[in-house]
Design a protein around this nucleic acid. Structure first.
Lengths: 95, 95
DNA sequence: TTCTTATTTAGAAAATTATCTAAATAAAGA
DNA sequence: TCTTTATTTAGATAATTTTCTAAATAAGAA
């Protein structure tokens, strides 16, 4: 899976904003790019980082490539964070 | 607060392992360092990154500096992730 | 097949990060 | 005050990241 890749992917503000966009609905690469003041090539790079981290998946339709949020990795992160936090009244059964 | 800083801090495997160590109990910088095959200076750098991200706080005791996990930021991350994930049966009231 | 549109890939430059060694600081003890 | 121990800071270097421009690929339309 790779927490390093996932956290690194989430550490960039542009990539977090992309994910927020995809929260609403899937979007083509171009539509995503139109929300930023950067070249399409740069957005394509960011999408590849998100894809490698399995935070999004893509599906081609004709000349368009659509990107969609993949929430399953988010679950894994939340489990990791929750475990680090200590799960107060459940894991520590001596209370 | 700064999600960028926090996610970036969590993206490094050494820093994640430090947090896992601190999950059990607070530790001095030297004790933390003894768990890794790196110089104390490097661990000190990683601790400063974690501190800037507010994932740990420190308290000096004599010549020792103790580091302790700060869980409050973890909560914020979990809220952000949970919101991205979509909070299925609560936020979308039309179900 | 040639053109157009959507997107990615390649290559380069600037910025950031992780690591080291050596030096500096901070506190306590002799 | 001098020494020792714990830790950080400074400066350097190698690796990685983010961004650009220009070129390449992929698919459909004329």
């Amino acid at each position: 899976m790779g927490f390093a890749e996932t956290f690194k992917a989430l550490s960039d503000p542009v990539r977090r904003e992309i994910l927020q966009l995809l929260k609403q609905r899937r979007m083509s690469a171009g539509e995503i790019a139109s929300n930023f003041e950067m070249t399409g090539a740069t957005i394509s790079y960011h999408l590849s980082v998100l894809k490698k981290a399995e935070l999004v998946f893509e599906s081609r339709e004709g000349t368009f490539i659509y990107y969609e949020l993949n929430t399953s990795v988010l679950e894994d992160l939340m489990v990791w964070l929750s475990d680090l936090k200590g799960v107060p009244s459940y894991e520590q059964t001596e209370n």
